[in-house]
Simulated scan of single mutants.
Amino acid sequence: MKKRILKDFALSQFVVCTDAGLSSEKNRIYNTLGGRGFITTQSIKKLKKHLKEWALDPPGWHVKTGDKAIHLSDIDDSFGNQTTYFKERWIKEGNLEQRLLVTFSPKYKHYQQTIRERQIERALKKGKKTVFP
């Protein structure tokens, strides 16, 4: 598909945005050719162990590039906090050097917690209606 876009639109530089399903090393390398770039999502669960540990480590978060690093225990963890925190580093996998960027949002954290709590409530209600012999 990307080759066809290059041919059909005579574009040589663009940024490809994909989910993890299209982020193989081969695809990422292809997406850097000719001055192109890529952005891809990736589950923290699927990172290599040392990168997962780095991503989940509480120190080293930022609000803006170049600002003082923040420890997650020092942030406002209220639902109203709309700030997105990030940490980043360069990694090299095979022949590909790339920047890994991890984000954290208290608002999204609370959103996910609310969804989980509702799922548990529904499961408990459904369990009460079930009659066991």
Rank of each mutant, 00 (worst) to 15 (best):
H50P: 11
E117F: 10
L96G: 02
G94A: 07
T40Q: 11
S78Q: 05
T32W: 05
A10L: 11
P133H: 08
T65R: 06
E88C: 11
G37L: 10
I39D: 05
D77W: 10
G21V: 10
R99I: 00
K49I: 14
W61N: 05
K109A: 01
Y111I: 01
E88W: 13
A69W: 10
L6C: 10
G94C: 05
P133R: 04
I115W: 03
L22H: 09
Q82R: 07
H62V: 02
K46L: 12
E88K: 14
Y108S: 02
M1N: 06
L47G: 08
G21N: 13
K87G: 10
G80A: 08
Q42V: 09
E117R: 14
T83M: 09
G21R: 13
G34C: 12
L100M: 15
R118G: 02
K52Q: 15
H110N: 03
V102H: 03
T83I: 11
K48S: 13
K109G: 00
N27H: 12
K26Y: 09
K129E: 04
K7P: 01
R116T: 00
G34M: 13
T18Q: 10
R122I: 01
K92L: 02
E97V: 13
V63K: 08
K107L: 00
L100F: 10
D8K: 15
A20M: 08
T32R: 12
K52R: 15
L47V: 10
E121I: 00
L101V: 14
H62K: 06
A10I: 08
P58Y: 07
K7E: 15
A55M: 15
R28Y: 02
A10W: 11
W90M: 15
L124M: 02
I75R: 00
G37C: 06
K125C: 01
S24C: 09
V15W: 12
I29S: 10
R122E: 08
I39G: 12
G94H: 00
T18E: 12
I115G: 03
D19P: 06
A10Q: 15
R89V: 12
K68N: 12
T84G: 01
R118P: 00
T103N: 02
K45F: 07
R4S: 13
R99V: 07
L101N: 07
P59R: 09
S24G: 11
K107P: 00
H110V: 01
V16G: 00
L72C: 09
I44Y: 03
S23P: 07
Q119K: 09
T84L: 05
K92G: 01
Q13P: 05
N27Q: 12
L22N: 10
F14T: 03
F86Q: 09
T103W: 01
I29G: 05
F86S: 08
R89I: 14
Q98Y: 15
K129V: 00
A123C: 04
K129F: 03
P106W: 00
H62T: 09
E25L: 14
Y30R: 10
K129M: 09
S78T: 13
W90V: 10
L47C: 05
D77Y: 02
I115A: 04
K125Y: 04
K64W: 01
F38N: 11
K92W: 00
T41C: 04
A69Q: 14
F14N: 06
L51K: 13
Y30W: 15
V131I: 13
N95K: 06
R36N: 13
R36M: 15
